[in-house]
Amino acid sequence: MTEFLQHLVNGLSVGTIYALIALGYTMVYGVLKLINFAHGDVYMVGAFSGYYIAHALGAGDRPTLPKALAVFVGSMVVCGALGAAIERFAYRPLRARPRLTALITAIGVSFLLEYGFQLPSFGLTTQPFPPGPTPRFFPQPFARVSWSLGGVELSNYDVVSFAVAFGFMLLLQLVVYRTRFGRAMRAVSFDAQVAGLMGINVNRVIAGTFVLGSVLASVAALLVAGSRPTINPLMGLMPGLKAFVAAVFGGIGNVPGAMVGGLVLGLAEEYVAGYLLSSYRDAIAFAILIVVLLVRPEGLFGRVRAEKV
């Protein structure tokens, strides 16, 4: 039983990360019908910007709450700006082109970030930038305190991580369903052309969606890097793909679906690795994708919308 509960704790902590990244995929797909494959790499940039800010503040030696907050906010700002820039320079010029063009561009942006970060350092900064392929070690944001509840190990990192992740998901829910921007976003998602005719600034809504998704990715990255401190330029690859699976599972384009999808995927992986065979851990995500596409292609919460011709 303790083992089962421990797996639950571990699975939720991985699942919340997938959920946060999946939200970015699903929102962008919602407004643009584009699968933004560079999203996993925005997550990687989130971890690295946190790393550089932490070093600039000297947070590695003496972690304090204001410094941790500065790292958090700073990294969110960097990622938000990156998301807006990617949308502006990579996707907007191609919006009128066939969807495949944008998809291939997304893969190009992903490679640009992954391999750009692996270039040798320019040597202009004290912390080498670009970082190169050697992993870096993320400084600990705050001291670790852990509790053993009847054999189940829980730490303040897990608690903070859950709280922050769920806090941001609630906030997103509020933004999407309770604000003018959210209403505009849903309108663009429903029909961008008509939304534009109704006076909604479609470009601004799409840019805002990218910013929102990228900020969530940076939150996910910092939560991961705080407790599992090695970061490298390819770290976004696997989580990105798995979060994509989570988004498809929940019904791509559907915000609550991405959250549920992420949590289910995290738990499924955890229980498969824990009780069956750990080599199947990565396989399970893609097995889920295949099953979903076969049985319910629109995903758990997705709605089938007739193609308008």
């Binding site: 083992e3 421990q6 797996h7 571990n10 390819l234 992986e269 955890e270 690795a273 824990g274």
Partner: peptide, 12 residues
Amino acid sequence: AGDQDFKAQLTA
């Protein structure tokens, strides 16, 4: 190699 989370295996 490249995994960051090993808790599933370690819990087992």
